[in-house]
Amino acid sequence: MLRFIVKRIGLSILTLTIVSLIVFLMTSIMPGDIAKQILGRDASPEAFEIWNKEKGFDKPLVVQYSRWMGGVLTGDLGTSFQYEMPVGEILGPAASKSAQLAIVALILIAPISILGGIVAAMNRGKKVDRALTVGGLSAAVIPEFVWAVVLILVFGVAIRAFPVSAFPDEENPNIVSSVYHLILPSIALLFVLFGYISRITRAGVIEALDSDYMRTAVLKGLSRKTAVFRHVLRNALLPTIAVIATQVPYLAGGLIAIERVFNYPGFGNILLDAVIARDFPLLQTAVFLTGVVIIVFQLIADILFAVLNPRIRQKVTE
């Protein structure tokens, strides 16, 4: 088991290294002179040279990369072009804001979507199932910003049930008010994520329902309900939760549009500003850290899944 965990962590580190290289190379090799973009076309050649030297862009790529990575590993995330501030000080508070939104969203999304998947599976082929699957997946392919705009239109402007900004106006908002402001953006995320999570859950439950061991349980004389509780959900939800953990961070990309529409000072908003301002130190690090979060999530999910599943537990132990 330990060997499996060590190997799995090793692989994650390898992947992260590749991620860092991709991010670094994309911002270093791509056409478009950074200095020109930051200083403007009319600046003198000397100004470019001084600026490049100051930022270390005259050094070979290997040196630039190791300086960046070395900094990230030691906690020095670099200095933003746009704010002239340490990147860590900008990203830290923004990340915590995004985490708040993500947590509220997940508390809303996970139970509803898993329940939706179970209901669909138990009613396979019936109208409820069709409605949940086709409806859920159709909702999932509509971009977050469309949902956000429509939700604001309906709930914020037309019936005024929820605030249109995700960020409370008060000086010292209490937790209730904060959560209240996060509900509308969470619902927008729900629409996009419901389809994925409920589909994965449904597939897992159906596989377990169709399994020979479920048949055994029913033919032992368990009522269908008891058999489902004891034999199906346990087997179906374990992989489902693992898959959710690995899938959800991908959809974190959606936070950018949501945060923009709801005017929420989170990670996504900062990232988008960095794109517009071509603030590469901030952008590089922000993108790399997104990769870190996602890969760590997948790592934890994989290890947990292996620990909880006897079959894999044995395979990796051998």
Partner: peptide, 19 residues
Amino acid sequence: AISAIPVIIIALLAVAAIG
């Protein structure tokens, strides 16, 4: 590694890099 970064984010990074 490429798919460890959400599509929209990597696309934005590319747009920023190309300028």
